[in-house]
Design a protein around this nucleic acid. Structure first.
Lengths: 349, 349
DNA sequence: CACGTGGTTTGCAACGTTACAATAGACGTT
DNA sequence: AACGTCTATTGTAACGTTGCAAACCACGTG
C-alpha cells in the first residue's frame, strides 16, 4: 500500500496511483525530462526516432501534460474569455455563437471561459481582472460600440481580443462582423419587390456600430429605391418591449403608416409580430415583414415571415479562427471578417 | 532599461515591470514568503497585526495571486465545467441559466468553463478528459437521463458534479431540478378550469428524467380530474419540428381531438402555436394552451397563452450554491433542490 | 534562573513544466 | 591526428505558490 519511492531518479515504476509526469515518462524511456518535453512538443531538435519512441511510451503510460504547470511556466493560459452581458444576452444568440466558437477551437487545446461583463457597475473592471489575474490569453465580446471602452482598453494594453462587430477606432483590430448594411438593403429590396412603400426598421441601436450600419444601409436603400424609410428614435434593441410596441403603435397611428418592416433580430421580429397581431394587421396583406434569422426558432413564428439569415455558428467559427490567428501573430488585415447575409428565404416548415 | 537584479532575496524593488509576487510583498513587509501566503489566506496562525499590515502592503503593491501557481501547488483549479450539447442547447435556456450560475459564483473566485459534451461521438470522453487533465473541480450538466452515463461515471470516480434534473440511481447525488410534476398538474388544472376535456402534453421525452416526471404528473392529474390526457409517443423534445407538427396534426385529425395543450418548453410552445395557426384553430376558442415560460420571449408569443414559470436564473443560482456546498463537503441531502413552478400567469404585455 | 508552553514566524522542499546554457558524439576538413 | 561544426541530448534553474517541520520569542512557572 505505502510502497515508498527509494531511488530519486531511476524509479521507472514508482508512483503507483498518481498521474504520470514528464519524469515518469523520461525514466521509462531512459532519457532526460527535457527530451521528453521537447519530443512531445514536436521540437525539431529531437531525432525523429526518439520522438516516436517517447510518444509511444507517453501514450502507453497515459501521460497527460499538467496544464497548471504549463501555465505557470509559460505564462499562457490556453483560455479564451467570452464576455457576456447577463442583462442582454438572454437569447439564442449566445448558444449558437458559442457552439460555433467551440467547434472552431476544438482540437486546439483552448477552452472557453464565460465571464459576465457587467454584474458590477464597471464592465472594464472585469476585463482588467482578466488581464491582471491572467485568466485568459484572449478576450471576445459582442455588442461592440462605435467607441467601445473595452476595445480601447484592450488596444491600449495590447491584449489579444476579437470583437463581434466593428468599432470606429482608427487603429485597426481583429473583428468578425455581419454585413448589416447588406442585410438591410436586401430586406428593403425584398419589401420593395412586394410593393411596399414605407418601411420601418425595427429597432437598431445607435450606440452599437451595427446600428449605424443598419441606418446607413437603410438610407442608401431608401435613396436607391426612392422610398420612405423610418427608423424610430429614442427606442432600440435594448428598450422594454412595451416601449417598442408603443412606438410601433404611434408610428402606425400617424398618416403614412409603414407597410413594411425589417426586423433586425429575433426578438424584434417577435415584438413586431405581436404588435401586428394586437393591431389586427395581417402579414402579407396589410404589411410585410422581413426579419433577420439567427436561430431555428424563427421558423416557428406565425404568421410566417421572410427571413434573411445570419449564420451565428459560422460567426463563432470565424471568431475562433481569428482568435487563433491573433494569438499566433497574424497581420491584422487577415483578421477582419465580414460575413454576408443569406436570403431572403420564405419559411417553409 | 535592463537593470539586473543583483540581490537574490533582499531586493525589495527589483522587477519593475512584472507583476508583484508573494516574494515581492514579503520583501516589502520584511517577513517570510510563507507568512505572506498565510496572512492573505486568513490563516489563524498569523497575528492579527501582521495580517493587517501585510494585507495593506499587498493591496498597495497591487498583488494578485498567480492562479497557475496555486493550481499547480494545490491541484485544484477553481473552475467549474458546464457541459453543453451544441445540438440541443440552442435556446434561451442556456443563457438565463448561465447568468444565474454566474451570479451565484460571483465573489467565490470560481470561473465557469463551457465544454461541449458531444462534438465527437462519445460524450463521456469529454468528461474523462476534464477529469484526467484536471480542467475543473466540478462538473454541471443538463438534460439528465434516468440512468445517465455521465452521472454514473462521475459517481464512480467520486468527482464533484451537480445535475440539472434527477436520476433514478440509488446512490443519492447533488441536483437542482424543477418540479415538473407540479408544473404539469398546474397546467392541466388550469385547462380543466377553462373547461377543456382532452389534454395533450407537448412534447416530453421519456429518455430524460423530467419527461418521466411530466408523464407521471400528467397521469396523476388525469386521474384526479377524471379526464383524458394524451402524450404522443415516438416524438419528443428532440424531434424535428416537422415531425412534431405532423404528430399534432394526426392527433387533431382523429376523433376526440385534444382541446387543450400543455407545452413543456418555449420551442414546444412556438411549434404548437404554429400548428394551431396552420390548422386555423383559434387559441381561447377552439383550444387553450398553457406553456412553460423560461425566458422573456414567451411574452411576445401571439396568440397570447397562459404560462407557468420556471425561473432559470434562480435555477442557476441554486446550482452554484449546491456546487459550492458539494465542494466544501456538505451532506448530499442538503444538496438536492427542487424548485417550484409559479403561475399560471396570463401574459399581459 | 533554567524550563517548558503557546502563539508566531521561518526555511526548505516540493508541484510539473519549459528556457537556457552546456555537453557529448559523429563527422568531415585541414 | 587535431580541429571545428554540426546535431542530439542533458542538467540546472527557474515560474509562484503552499505544506511541513523546525525555530524563534516572550512569558509565566517551578
Amino acid at each position: 500500500m505505502s510502497r515508498k519511492n527509494l531511488g530519486t531518479k531511476a524509479d521507472s515504476v514508482g508512483a503507483a496511483q498518481s498521474r504520470p509526469t514528464l519524469r515518469t515518462v523520461a525514466a521509462e524511456a531512459g532519457v532526460a525530462v527535457t527530451t521528453v518535453s521537447r519530443a512531445l512538443a514536436d521540437d525539431p531538435r529531437i531525432a525523429e526516432s526518439t520522438r516516436k519512441r517517447i510518444a509511444e511510451i507517453a501514450r502507453k503510460l497515459g501521460y497527460v501534460p499538467n496544464r497548471a504547470a504549463q501555465r505557470l511556466r509559460t505564462g499562457r493560459t490556453r483560455v479564451i474569455s467570452l464576455l457576456l452581458n447577463p442583462r442582454h444576452e438572454f437569447l439564442s444568440f449566445t448558444s449558437e455563437f458559442l457552439g460555433g466558437m467551440y467547434e472552431g477551437l476544438s482540437g486546439t487545446g483552448y477552452a472557453i471561459n464565460i465571464t459576465a461583463d457587467s454584474l458590477g457597475d464597471d464592465r472594464l473592471e472585469t476585463i482588467r481582472s482578466i488581464r491582471r489575474h491572467s485568466l485568459a490569453d484572449a478576450i471576445v465580446f459582442t455588442r461592440t460600440e462605435c467607441f467601445d471602452d473595452r476595445a480601447r482598453y484592450l488596444l491600449e494594453h495590447d491584449f489579444p481580443f476579437v470583437t463581434h462587430g466593428r468599432t470606429d477606432f482608427m487603429t485597426p483590430h481583429p473583428f468578425v462582423d455581419f454585413d448589416n448594411e447588406a442585410f438591410v438593403r436586401m430586406g428593403i429590396a425584398r419589401l420593395v419587390e412586394k410593393g411596399r412603400k414605407h418601411i420601418c426598421i425595427v429597432m437598431p441601436n445607435e450606440k452599437y456600430t451595427f446600428g449605424q450600419h443598419l441606418r446607413f444601409g437603410a438610407r442608401q436603400a431608401a435613396t436607391a429605391h426612392g422610398m420612405r424609410v423610418t427608423i424610430p428614435e429614442d427606442v432600440d434593441l435594448d428598450s422594454e418591449p412595451d416601449e417598442i410596441a408603443a412606438t410601433l403603435r404611434a408610428l402606425h397611428a400617424g398618416s403614412d403608416a409603414p407597410d413594411g418592416y425589417v426586423c433586425v433580430g429575433e426578438v424584434s421580429a417577435l415584438i413586431t409580430l405581436a404588435f401586428l397581431s394586437d393591431m389586427g394587421l395581417t402579414q402579407g396583406v396589410d404589411v410585410d415583414v422581413v426579419a433577420k434569422r439567427a436561430s431555428p426558432i424563427s421558423n416557428h413564428f406565425r404568421p410566417r415571415i421572410e427571413t434573411i439569415d445570419e449564420d451565428l455558428r459560422a460567426t463563432g467559427r470565424a471568431m475562433a479562427k481569428v482568435l487563433l490567428g491573433r494569438m499566433s501573430g497574424a497581420p491584422v488585415e487577415d483578421l477582419q471578417v465580414l460575413l454576408q447575409p443569406e436570403g431572403p428565404f420564405a419559411i417553409s416548415s
